[in-house]
Design a binder for these strands. Structure first.
Length: 415
RNA sequence: CGGGGUGUUGUGUAAUGGUAGCACGAAUCGUUUGGGACGAUUUAGUCAGAGUUCGAAUCUCUGCACCCCGACCA
């Protein structure tokens, strides 16, 4: 991608309105744009990060043991489904609006009210179970107070997976596997997330949160120093020792909740009368679980945990580009080499942002590069050309090294 | 939803009842080019409405918007 053509704009000035680091950096670096409180556009850079996060999640949801099938459910949902589950009046953040013919509809904040009636048309027999479906879809929650940039918004992209089971035992086996899948998903993104035991709230028996340690987080978690399980505040108040290993030494941390998995039991299958016919001919209710990850929030949390005073430092797994190619100076040979490298890198399937702007000085290009936070910076100049090399710098490190032109592609690829 | 704060060119700010100015950005030209270059010219603004006043960015009221604290949070 040519940087001069990229649909974005960096800004030196910190906005006076902005408090959280991720909001400030993502806005200034041109990843996101705020339309209104709690509502954001994702520009090409931000969209690429979002798509990378989505790709990692999708792969893990499709593969065993999750075995999910991807679907897409609507945002507009009828009132009667929410009345059935008693959530039309009791779900505080539900966006309600009037459809044609004065019909009441809701913008879905979650999709049990859609997926359960859907499953009712497909799942009839024990042979149809277990089954898992998932989607990436915008959720709407009319939060009384949106805050911290993209960490808490009113419209946000979420991956939600719903699993349906014939028995509680089968559900629990699946849930335990998903617990590990989730941990692995965040690891694959280059993120350290803690499994956090949480109470289930009013709609489930129990749940686990995935918390990423960051100062800007809204949550406080307590990490057991012995087994590394974390617990949230409610659990801490009920249990003086770790529920897992009975250890008593906890480290208190601020954290951002990036994912959450729930045991739903028959909370939703019951009101919709979602049943199946078992082997012995008896009718039984379907047992359910649900598993969510907030993509935008994950992106914000990554920035909260990975930045310095100059800008963002993306883990390579989610970075919008792998390398940032920057020619310095006006020398024709340098520019020609940069063009060639740009072509070569693309041939090697390396996602590359090429800062070919000729009206910008080196200092400004470097400052932009630091702000954008692409993992590898490749500088070519008269100086490096003399040595048949390029200058390679990792955003996360301060060291700069000269690498032979023939070799640096290999180095970038292998990390 | 309770409380607090703030609204001035695209962005950041100044003007404390009396000429709306500065910096960045953007545009044109020239000189520059390894850590946010320089000169010249240009561009663009008082959130909306009402009121007080000879005169309002400034004071008052209403509305709207955004931010922060709290409460809430599948």
């Amino acid at each position: 991608m040519l940087q001069s053509k990229l649909f974005y704009k960096t800004d030196k000035n910190k906005s006076s309105d902005v408090e959280s680091v991720s909001h400030d950096l993502l806005t200034r670096a041109g990843y996101v744009d705020q339309l209104m409180a709690g509502v954001y556009s994702f520009l090409p850079l931000g969209f690429r990060v979002l798509k990378n996060i989505e790709g990692i999640i999708r792969k893990n949801m499709v593969e065993a043991p999750a075995n999910g099938q991807e679907i897409l459910m609507p945002s507009l949902t009828p009132k009667e489904n929410w009345v059935k589950t008693d959530r039309w009046e009791n779900f505080d953040v539900l966006f309600k609006l009037k459809g044609a013919g004065d019909k009441d509809v809701a913008l879905a904040p979650t999709h049990e009210e859609v997926v359960v009636p859907l499953a009712k048309k497909i799942v009839f027999s024990y042979k149809d179970l277990p089954i898992s479906v998932f989607q990436f879809q915008n959720k709407f929650r009319n939060e009384l107070r949106a805050k911290s940039g993209i960490l808490r918004t009113r419209e946000f992209l979420m991956k939600d997976l719903y699993s349906l089971h014939a028995t509680q035992e089968d559900f629990e086996k699946y849930y335990d596997k998903m617990k590990k899948v989730y941990l692995s998903v965040f690891k694959q993104m280059g993120i350290k997330a803690y499994v956090t035991l949480a109470s289930g709230g009013s709609f489930s028996k129990y749940s686990h949160e995935y918390q990423m340690v960051a100062e800007a987080g809204e949550d406080t978690i307590y990490i057991c120093q012995k087994c590394k399980l974390a617990i949230n505040k409610e659990i801490k108040e009920e249990n003086p020792t770790c529920p897992e290993c009975k250890g008593g030494d906890f480290e208190e941390k601020k954290a951002v909740e990036v994912g959450n998995i729930f045991s739903l039991g028959t909370k939703f299958s019951a009101p919709f009368d979602l049943k199946f016919r078992d082997k012995d001919g008896s009718e039984k209710p379907v047992i359910m679980g649900c598993y969510g990850i907030g993509l935008g929030r994950t992106m914000g949390a990554v920035v909260e945990a990975n930045h310095d005073d100059k800008g963002i430092i993306w883990p390579r797994e989610v970075a919008p580009f792998l390398a940032h190619l920057i020619p310095v100076g006006q020398d024709k040979k340098v520019l020609k080499l940069a063009e060639k490298l740009y072509t070569d890198l693309q041939k090697e399937d390396i996602e590359i942002l090429y800062d070919e702007r000729q009206d910008k000085t080196a200092g400004e290009k470097f400052a932009d590069a630091d702000l954008l936070g692409i993992p590898y910076r490749i500088v070519v100049s008269e100086k490096t050309l003399l040595k048949n090399s390029v200058e390679l710098k990792e955003r996360a490190k301060s060291a700069v090294r000269l690498v032979k032109i023939k070799e640096f592609i290999k180095i970038i690829k292998n990390g």
